[in-house]
Design a protein around this nucleic acid. Structure first.
Lengths: 345, 345
DNA sequence: CAAGCCTGATAAATCCGTTAATCGGATTTG
DNA sequence: CAAATCCGATTAACGGATTTATCAGGCTTG
């Protein structure tokens, strides 16, 4: 049905080699005169010849396609803008380099190796938030170049490249910011179901360490709030007068929910309570008050990861097999100096 | 380097046909005894044989891959959660059916036909918001099955399927809701740069028609607010006492920005001003007050579109070549009866 | 003049599975 | 007993491009 290179060759009265050379070829073993070349181009155009990529892929063993694996595609849409920045970062670099992007579903581990080893993908960006031993093994066994986003490098080196952000430094910036504003007792908040996220745990630990170092706040289980964030829980907690003047949230979304609960409970923000989020996407501009947030350079990270992957595919050894991006802090309107007796001295 | 089917066949002392049949084949022209079959499976396993998908794709002329074209991938991350729901909807249906999803960049029109006609994609979901003649022509010429999301069907029928939501009915619901609450003068808001979006225009027109029909509000250019939404603009407008008690926004994002400007300008929401958004994603739960919003069943639309596409690929003729989904209205906390003299009679 | 080189072009191998056609021989059926 | 059937398996023809090896013929060059 479709026009093949043979059809074009026959119509032009030349060999398929000539057609191939004229339309795409780079080698110089096949030579075609300019006259013939133009004829061939014209005939191909007339016949609406579209080279069959499947044949070409097989022959050249290249597909110009890389895969992207999300850890939790199922709950993708419920997730924050974070994922969109990630996708945008990966995609834009690929497209600029004339690569295609294939989204892979979350697969059973057995299936993954089959999927990655079937020749259809030249490389893969694995956006992996959990870091169990099995996953590391899988990354190690991966038959194609792989870059792991948001996974810290394992102890033993592999051929995989690891790109992550420095959660601890980000949290430290937030604590520092609050300490400078005069806060002396701050809490860390996450929603109950986030306990399994290693990012959440890392940020929590960093919170405790930084709070101790920068404001002498001894670690105390009560400083870590893990609710499901319905209004009663918040109202009860606040009524118990726990004495906190600021809360650092593990994520943007948690911070957004907290803002709502606090507002509903009648607090005046940020005077009664300063709130800091984590991620700093466009969402932070839409809250009231606008959310001060630790910024993770996710788009940059995604771009770096993808560029590195393209280099790996071309056989270039990367300078670093592990890169950690520092976080920043975008100060907006949800943080201020604490009010009340504690500050009136 | 990689293990091929011939390597396995040689190691097992059988023909490649036997190996192929045992591992994947469905035809019954090739028959293999159970004993041999098990031997072959075992040897393939031992050798870590991974069938080369490129060869198989070429032979069978199938790839089990469909493409997804976004209109504006570049500004993707700046967009609303809408896109994530769309992606999630398309992806989940594909993955359930063991298809792969390839994201395509926005291409020049000339390149698109080449991309879609090279055999790598079995079908494509085109998420197209602009609807110029050239695009319709392109959809018409598309060499593979295509479903257009968010594009109304053209007058002359094509083989493409069109899926869209009924903007007009959604806006009508919003106006009706406000009218029932007692509002008598309402406005429509969009950000200046949205003028080019046909969705935005459709919603604006529907607003004017519904406002006239349901509350006798004659169309007036002043009812359509097109700002770039800095605080001064809003404050000035409000101070001029325009008399509006409610604003319907063309999108969720616009509504979110409006909430912030209004709050910053000292308005009490929703008492001073009722606000309605459009799309109703999880974002609406995060605003203060929580945003009443027209709901577009985007995930459902995406699923329907994708299922239809898979049917098209299998040669099944769809019942409808055009389907419009009705919108709903999710009433939350950003709308209430108007206060002030207008309601005190 | 023989040897070497350049131009323009082709034939054929190759990438790696899939599958229709075929085949020997044993068994069943009329 | 001849013919039909079935089992287990192989051979070889694809699919559609890329690319190496090769060739004919004309032109240089020592």
């Amino acid at each position: 049905m479709a026009v093949t290179i043979r059809d074009v060759a026959k119509a032009a009265g030349v060999s398929t080699a000539a057609v191939s050379k004229v339309l795409h070829g780079r080698g110089d073993s096949v030579r075609v005169s300019d006259t013939r070349a133009n004829q061939i181009r014209e005939i191909a155009e007339q016949m609406h010849y579209r080279p069959n990529a499947l044949a070409r892929n097989l022959r050249t063993q290249r597909t110009h396609t890389v895969g992207l694996i999300f850890e939790n595609f199922g709950s993708f849409a419920a997730g924050p803008l974070y994922y969109m920045h990630l996708l945008e970062g990966v995609g834009s670099v690929l497209f600029k380099n004339h690569y295609r992007l294939t989204i892979l579903p979350e697969l059973l581990h057995d299936d993954i190796l089959g999927s990655l080893g079937d020749g259809q993908l030249e490389g893969v960006v694995w956006c992996k938030l959990t870091r169990d031993a099995e996953t590391l093994q899988l990354i190690h066994d991966c038959p194609i170049p792989i870059v792991a986003l948001n996974a810290p490098a394992p102890a033993e080196p592999t051929d995989a490249v690891f790109v992550a952000c420095d959660n601890a430094s980000g949290i430290r910036l937030a604590v520092e910011h609050l300490a400078k504003l005069g806060h002396r007792k701050i809490a860390f908040a996450h929603e109950v179901q986030e306990l399994t996220s290693p990012d959440c745990l890392e940020r929590r630990d960093a919170f405790q360490a930084s709070a101790k170092e920068l404001m002498g706040q001894e670690p105390n289980p009560a400083d870590v709030l893990a609710w499901d964030w319905h209004l009663p829980e918040f109202a009860d907690w606040w009524k118990s007068d726990p004495g906190y003047t600021a809360i650092i949230c593990w994520s943007e979304r948690t911070a957004g929910t907290l803002i709502n609960r606090a507002t509903e409970a009648g607090l005046k923000l940020p005077e009664d309570l300063s709130i800091v989020g984590f991620d700093s996407t466009a969402y932070c501009e839409t809250t009231t008050p606008r959310l001060t947030s630790v910024s993770q350079p996710i788009s940059e990270m995604a771009r770096y990861a993808t560029n590195t992957l393209l280099n790996l595919i071309q056989g270039k050894r990367p300078e670093n097999f592990s890169l950690t991006f520092p976080c920043g802090l975008d100060v907006r309107d949800s943080t201020t100096r604490p009010s009340g007796p504690r500050n009136s001295e």
